[in-house]
């Protein structure tokens, strides 16, 4: 039997996005949601939070999404956590690039709060750890 998705860590430098993602995932998906305002903050917290999945913005000042993903993969404690990128750049070549970097999937920005949970649930179900 597959493991249920319970805890999501959202990472975005834009507070508007963090708030609406948290509301949507908590209300519609019924998940526990933690949030981080940068890649660095996410890395500092991820081992204690131990989320099931990470929703990670691609374009952030400082440490961007791909660098954060690389850092997560390099640590044994976090290497297995599925990471879903959030980005406005969803041309097929860009999606292929993100998947090659190790992302479990891509959610297009701007997202619809009504369907964010179902999109994430679908990507969780198809991930290796579910």
């Amino acid at each position: 039997m597959s493991r249920a998705l319970n805890h999501v860590l959202c990472v975005d430098d834009e507070p508007d996005i963090l708030e609406v993602a948290q509301l949507s995932l908590e209300t519609v998906g019924g998940y526990r949601v933690s949030s981080a305002a940068s890649g660095k903050v996410a890395l500092a917290q991820v081992e204690s939070l131990r989320p099931d999945i990470i929703l990670l913005d691609v374009m952030m000042p400082g440490m961007d999404g791909p660098s954060t993903l690389q850092a997560l993969r390099s640590r044994p404690a976090t290497a297995h956590i599925p990471v879903v990128f959030m980005t406005a750049r969803v041309q097929s070549a860009e999606v292929v690039e993100y998947l090659e970097q190790g992302a479990a999937g891509v959610i297009a920005k701007p997202f619809d709060p009504m369907t964010l949970s179902s999109q994430l649930e679908e990507l969780w179900s198809s991930s290796d750890v579910a």
Partner: peptide, 11 residues
């Protein structure tokens, strides 16, 4: 522009 592009529709 990037921030507004990424948030407008969501709101």
């Amino acid at each position: 522009a990037h921030k507004l592009a990424g948030t407008g529709s969501t709101y």
